[in-house]
Design a binder for these strands. Structure first.
Lengths: 230, 230
DNA sequence: GTTGGATAATCTCAATGGGACTATCCAGAA
DNA sequence: TTCTGGATAGTCCCATTGAGATTATCCAAC
């Protein structure tokens, strides 16, 4: 029973930090800033959490801590160990969880019939503003990156694949909110009196089916069998 | 200083429950099941939370609790009050937070260069499987709904707008994972040796810019000014 | 010399997740 | 008739987490 086994269990957040350490050594502060600027988009965590994780990594032998100081202010630089690289590689072998979404504006729209049409339109405008904001930040950093200001160019083959998902996600939010705005504008003042035509539902079902069949066609394992197994 | 002011503050989750109560009275169990089946997609919360929220609503005077029983088993039916409807309408006036994403598979892909190409492909396959699963469930319920089995047809005008976002989101995950699979298949066995061509980055930047300009064209307030104000 | 923003954390409390636990009801199988 | 499994109807608890308040130093610019 070594002390290692008593250390708090490693979480996905631990491995997110460990992954950053695999790129280069960082101080805890740098790790926190880096997380907030990048990984926060797909793995949002409170800053205070980010200061705890490297300590766990050290307790598990996956990283080492080096105390340095800038003047009288101490700081801790963390470096990944061979054991840490092995643990990271092992973690990467399992695929992980699918996406989980939290979307308050969408939730409010679900209850739009208990408010006014203007409320719904304001919410959709906020969604579009959010998407625009995200894209602005994204374009800014992508431009800087391509201009050579960014670091880690050698990782670009890997990171760009994920970046495309984010751009497309922000685009989705914008397109959807734009479409929804047109639909909602046709509503009467009191949305609960909006015509409950099922036309849109049929359309959605059709879309969903098209896409499900596209999935079946192009999925890797022999599709017919794979579908039946479920 | 009435007791109401001492009750725990209302959260977004409280209003999610309150919104359901605005449709009809429910027991706590029914509320929990309904949340898990529907609102969970945009507002995921632990079941134990859902049992606490109606009590808060009662403490705030937004709902009333009626004790009933089925045989010897007691149950509580919650009903919204006029004050509750007013509070819901007021809550709907503010637009709420933009989307927040948690996506472990995407996170692992970000660190793909510390694992194998096969790991990355397995993760992408899992993303596609997830999207397929979500679409299957969605199609199933949409079909039942259109066949007349579902309830709340009169709310369809409102709910279908949100439903479209979800279908498109699942589609996005699938399309992206399919595209990414093709890209990753071209990588060498060791992804850290993948060619760091910036072609994809340029493409992403181009996409992002196109979309940002589309946003500027179609946004509600005079676009040029709105952009400059930021 | 002062000020403000960046660096470098720690601490705390309320909120939350996730499950273990209890117990009854009811339909269908044995 | 009894038994069983799944649905109904919750409660309870603990570890994790979020969010922010707090402290303090460094450093460049005014």
């Amino acid at each position: 029973m070594s002390r290692v086994e008593r250390a708090p269990a490693l979480t996905t957040t631990s491995f997110a930090i460990l992954g950053l350490l695999a790129i280069q050594p960082w101080t805890t502060y740098e790790l926190a800033v880096q997380m907030e600027r990048t990984l926060n988009r797909v793995w949002p965590r409170a800053r205070s959490r980010l200061y705890e994780e490297p300590k766990k990594l050290v307790a598990h032998g996956l990283a080492t801590a080096t105390k340095e100081s800038v003047g009288r202010r101490p700081r801790t630089v963390y470096t990944i160990t061979d054991q840490g690289r092995a643990a990271l590689a092992e973690w990467l072998q399992s695929p992980g969880e699918g996406p989980s979404l939290e979307f308050e504006q969408h939730l409010k729209l679900f209850f739009a019939d208990f408010g006014t049409r203007e409320d719904a339109l304001a919410g959709l405008a906020a969604s579009r503003a959010w998407a625009e904001q995200q894209l602005d930040v994204f374009i800014e950093s992508a431009r800087a990156y391509l201009a050579g200001e960014g670091e880690f160019h050698q990782r670009s083959a890997v990171t760009s694949v994920g970046a495309r998902f984010l751009v497309d996600f922000y685009d989705l939010v914008d397109r959807w909110a734009a479409w929804a705005t047109e639909v909602v504008q046709e509503w009467p003042d009191d949305p609960s009196r909006a015509d409950p035509t099922l036309a849109i539902d049929h359309y959605i079902l059709q879309l969903a089916q098209q896409r499900a069949s596209r999935l079946a066609e192009t999925s890797d394992p022999p599709p017919a069998t794979a579908k039946r197994d479920r």
